[in-house]
């Protein structure tokens, strides 16, 4: 059974341990600005919302890549950017309707969540259980994917 990141925003306190863990895992630096998971702060509601790639089935980024630099990891289900192949054209960044693949000027490549080869650092670092890595059926990701489906509904409905 493939696993997915499960987000429970109600449990998020906004400590940003996940962002530090993500940047450390991928760049060896503690720098929230480079994290692939982001906490969005709705101050007025007292709500913090962790947000990252859902590894959606539509794989907009993968489909849009002109040079085959984004591949499916068959084990984890993650859509993974191969930095050596990515030319930095950024087409994926405007194709992904979730805004979860982004261009990094410093590297000239795009970056996105790759589930850390099946051991996501953000989930390990989260002190409250707001981010967990669980069996895909448990995640309620279908809710978010329903939105993906909306972007693509005609195709899905009849294909």
């Amino acid at each position: 059974m493939q696993k997915s990141l499960h987000i429970d925003a109600n449990k998020c306190t906004g400590c940003l341990q996940c962002e530090m863990a993500c940047s450390y895992e991928n760049y060896g630096v503690f720098i929230t600005a480079k994290s692939r998971i982001k906490i969005f702060d709705f101050e007025n509601e007292g709500r913090k919302v962790p947000y990252t790639c859902t590894q959606c089935a539509e794989a907009w980024c993968l489909m849009a890549c002109p040079v085959d630099a984004i591949r499916l990891d068959a084990v984890t289900g993650a859509k993974v950017v191969n930095e050596a192949t990515c030319v930095g054209c950024k087409v994926c960044t405007i194709a992904c309707p979730f805004g979860t693949i982004n261009y990094v000027a410093a590297t000239g490549k795009v970056q996105k969540c790759d589930l850390c080869d099946g051991d996501p650092a953000c989930a390990t670092a989260c002190p409250t259980g707001a981010i967990t890595y669980v069996d895909a059926d448990w995640t309620g990701f279908d809710k978010m994917r329903a939105w993906a489906g909306k972007t693509d509904n005609a195709t899905r409905a009849s294909a």
């Binding site: 194709a95 992904c96 979730f98 805004g99 939105w147 972007t151």
Partner: peptide, 14 residues
């Protein structure tokens, strides 16, 4: 702007 620009597509298209 390079961060999260994809959601502009998402908001428009849906």
């Amino acid at each position: 702007w390079t961060d999260h620009v994809g959601v502009l597509r998402g908001l428009i298209q849906t």
